[in-house]
């Protein structure tokens, strides 16, 4: 597969992945672009990989995590999900979803990445561990911690609603 073909087929997916981890539309495009530029530089190597898309996703995720480790990085508040461009889904509880989206923004970058890879990219823990260069047990621990934080956030939100 040539680079242009790959971008045409999977480029937008990368931007979406960038948005789900960073919560910022502009940063999502930047991350996709960084990942694609790096992939283009080493395209022969990417092509030879077992799963080229996984290779590029790894670049994107690692770029994001590197970005968040920089002293100059300021965590962007999660952008409100633009409901006008969202595919309408009558079954979706939009209010719940928006609350959860805001709660996700309060997690650490690694916790958020693990949840995105697990629940949006449907990766198993071993694949996530391989992508992040950590042990599967660390992935499980991080996910567990993140889910606990989200549950806690939701419970306190509901208490607040009842009290108000």
């Amino acid at each position: 597969m040539e680079f242009e073909e790959y971008v045409s087929a999977r480029g937008q997916e990368l931007v979406r992945l960038g948005f789900t981890v960073s919560g910022d539309y502009q940063r999502a495009e930047d991350l996709a672009q960084i990942a694609l530029m790096q992939a283009f530089r080493a395209w022969r190597k990417v092509q030879r990989a077992d799963d080229p898309h996984n290779y590029v996703r790894r670049i994107l995720i690692n770029s994001y995590l590197s970005m968040t480790r920089r002293r100059s990085f300021t965590e962007a508040p999660a952008a409100e999900i633009d409901t006008e461009t969202t595919v309408p889904d009558p079954a979706t509880d939009i209010v719940n979803s928006d609350d959860l989206w805001r709660a996700l923004a309060r997690l650490s970058a690694r916790e958020r990445v693990v949840l995105v890879l697990r629940y949006y990219q449907d990766m198993d823990d071993r694949t996530i561990a391989d992508l992040l260069g950590i042990k599967p047990s660390s992935v499980r621990a991080t996910a567990s911690r993140a889910l606990a934080a989200l549950r806690k956030s939701r419970q306190s939100h509901r208490v607040d609603e009842r009290l108000s």
Binding site: F3, E4, V7, S8, G11, Q12, L14, V15, R16, L17, F19, T20, G23, Y25, A28, E29, A32, Q33, L36, M37, A39, F40, I81, D82, T83, T85, T86, V87, D89, T92, D93, I94, N96, S97, L100, W101, L104, L115, V116, Y119, Y120, L147, L150, R151, R154
Partner: peptide
């Protein structure tokens, strides 16, 4: 239930991302 909500939230968020034009040409 939380996991299911997470999937839904991520899907909604991803679907809200506007189309990024010329990704290939910008990268190259």
């Amino acid at each position: 239930e939380l996991e299911e909500d997470l999937r839904t939230t991520f899907e909604r968020a991803a679907a809200s991302v506007p189309l990024a034009p010329d990704l290939a040409s910008r990268a190259t």
